[in-house]
Nucleic acid binder design. Sequence first.
DNA 1: TAGCATTGCATAGCTCACTATGTAATAGTA
DNA 2: TACTATTACATAGTGAGCTATGCAATGCTA
Lengths: 141, 141
Amino acid sequence: MNSAGYLVNNMARLLVEVLRKRIAPLGIVPGQFPALLALWEKDGLTQKELLALLDIEQATLANTLTRMERDELITRKEHPADARARTIHLTDQGRSIRDSAYQTAMQINEEVLADLSEQEAHAFLDYMRRVIGKIKDIESP
Amino acid sequence: MNSAGYLVNNMARLLVEVLRKRIAPLGIVPGQFPALLALWEKDGLTQKELLALLDIEQATLANTLTRMERDELITRKEHPADARARTIHLTDQGRSIRDSAYQTAMQINEEVLADLSEQEAHAFLDYMRRVIGKIKDIESP
DNA sequence: TAGCATTGCATAGCTCACTATGTAATAGTA
DNA sequence: TACTATTACATAGTGAGCTATGCAATGCTA
């Protein structure tokens, strides 16, 4: 129970549950976070454009967007030029939680790294990026 | 998209998909791995005993065990002394994949850490353990 | 321009995590 | 001993990821 894989998985699960608890009052769930971050930056994207900004599969995003629509965080409008596509727009609700959500996320990041020195935290992020890079080219020639 | 939380989550998802692909030929899936590891160590545990060895919730384990039974990796027998409990036993199939599974997991761990030096890899695991420890006491006084 | 290929998105079905709750069986106690 | 509490496990329902597949609209080309 000390392998890298086990630790990574365990850490991710614990983290997502912390995030879930902290953002629950805002009426959002962890899976909606990446899409919200992107939409706070730029509203009115199509699903395809949004997808290009996120590291998830198209089907996962489609389902997440459906839940976000149900939760009244976004609306989807028909694309003016392409009837297959729809543009995605934040509701007032979706827009209004931006600052609190950002703050919550930053706060959690700070807290969980608090036992590492600045250098250690920096190294930790660097290692993760390198490991992610490595995993990505393991299963792609 | 460079926060610790995002990186951890991304890394975990990538890793689990690598594991999934590599162990598919053995007829198992990533969620079954921790339970298998424990049962390879000691067969015939009750669900409660197994649960104590794993970092998942009871309901998650119950569902995982049901899938493992369906996949003919384990069988469940009535407990000799307590009719509420059942003991969990590996099938021949479940037992036979042990070495290949171990090897696959170790191989992946090695590969994904291959771009880190020995010291870096060691530090990386250490940081993860510390972060995990920190997260655990964030939401418990 | 008719037909085929591609594209954008949705849906189905799976895993695997969670919380909440139900159901027996066992244990403890008035 | 008859209740009540606790325990062991199962089930229901949700989120969030995945692959595979479907469907309609668009684009390309013979």
